[in-house]
């Protein structure tokens, strides 16, 4: 599952540490999410989307949607 976390973060000039703080995870989790090595739980996906003021579908791109 791909996501737009890195792009959204850069667009809004937010650091990985700030995002990690806001959604209550470690910075390493944000790095892994951005690299696509880890898929967020529904709860974390919801928290990240809410932080950016977007819906989950706006932030996370599901495989079926890309094809």
């Amino acid at each position: 599952m791909e996501n737009r976390i890195a792009a959204l973060r850069k667009e809004r000039r937010i650091s990985q540490a700030e995002l990690a703080d806001a959604v209550d995870v470690t910075r390493q989790t944000i790095i892994s999410l951005e690299n696509g090595r880890y898929n967020a739980s529904l709860l974390l996906a919801h928290r990240i989307a809410a932080y950016f003021g977007l819906t989950i579908e706006d932030v996370f791109l599901f495989e079926e949607e890309r094809t």
């Binding site: 470690t26 989790t29 892994s32």
Partner: peptide, 14 residues
């Protein structure tokens, strides 16, 4: 706080 967050972190739990 960072240590506690690390223990709660869902990736760490996984």
């Amino acid at each position: 706080r960072e240590l506690e967050r690390g223990e709660r972190d869902e990736r760490n739990a996984a």
